[in-house]
Amino acid sequence: MGRIALNDIRKSFGKTEVIHGVDLAVEDGELVVFVGPSGCGKSTLLRLIAGLDRPTSGTIEIDGADVTRHSAANRGLAMVFQSYALYPHMTVRQNLSFGLENTKMERAEIRRRIEDSARMLEIEELLDRRPTQLSGGQRQRVAIGRAIVREPSAFLLDEPLSNLDAELRVTMRAELAQLHERLGTTMIYVTHDQIEAMTLADRIVVLRKGRIEQVDTPLNLYNRPANLFVAGFIGAPNMNFFETTASDGRAELPGGLHIDVPQDGKITAGIRPQHLRLANREEEALEGTVTLVEALGAETVVHARALDGTAMVTVLSGQPNLGIGDAIRIALDRGEVHLFDAEGQRIDPS
């Protein structure tokens, strides 16, 4: 079992509060990803769950039991650290067994668990080496192995892939997903990389400045971001935003393109670069000047400046013949426009 519930968690360091009242329920077997820019409190929140830090107020429950006052060792959780934190003076085998020995487990059982997890992670040949003799990917596996042998009720992973090179990161990401599939254990995963978040998560928790901005499945976050921050944070390249004022249910975007809106006043229209295309001659369009062309082969990212000076990015398929300084007319699919009110909250089309 591994249900984890946070109730109004607050954390201050000295006088500065860094977590401002977080409520969250993680279901058993779920893989939840905390994502957000650096300094958003995602790692702090994870450490609070781990028991490495104590919240200033609020309670943490694991499987219904209040563990807020329990020490890290007594929460039955395991953690994979960003730096892996493998004990450099111990062999891989000793690294794996250290935590088990501390719980006075029988030798045979320790042996069995190490062998099982080593087989699962394909690190059997590495058991007698020391961490310094391992490659980055191997260390990562050992760090995961050290968590697995504990058979915890939940895994906590703190940016576990950030020290790997790009290629390895993709492989390890896939392996982590498989591992979660196989173990079925609750995982809480912290990252600043939205691709990791999108690919791994059952649900994503977007954090900013110590507050939860939105909790939802990856595709819901992408399709229905709850506010400007989430809209801008999820998706690459970033969503284009156009600030405008609506009246009589209509708003005008630079270049004279009109969209229907359900309410008047200051609003922000957001549209993802992938949902823009070159306009036909007769269509209403966003007009601007090309400032940069990034040709990636299969697609081309075109940066342009709209008539009112707003920067906009378009992802066009193929290799359109565009150069810096060219005038450009961009059309959009009105169904893909996200609208946000003056406070930045999502407005659902009526």
Binding site: A50, G51, L52, S71, A72, A73, L77, A78, M79, F81, Q82, S83, A85, L86, Y87, F98, G99, N102, T103, R146, R150
Partner: peptide, 21 residues
């Protein structure tokens, strides 16, 4: 690194064990 100590704490090690081992 403090993370090593924290890893040991997660590993059920007492403070004395962290010091000694």
């Amino acid at each position: 690194p403090d993370e090593l100590l924290e890893a040991a704490r997660m590993d059920n090690a007492s403070e004395w064990q962290i010091y000694w081992r």
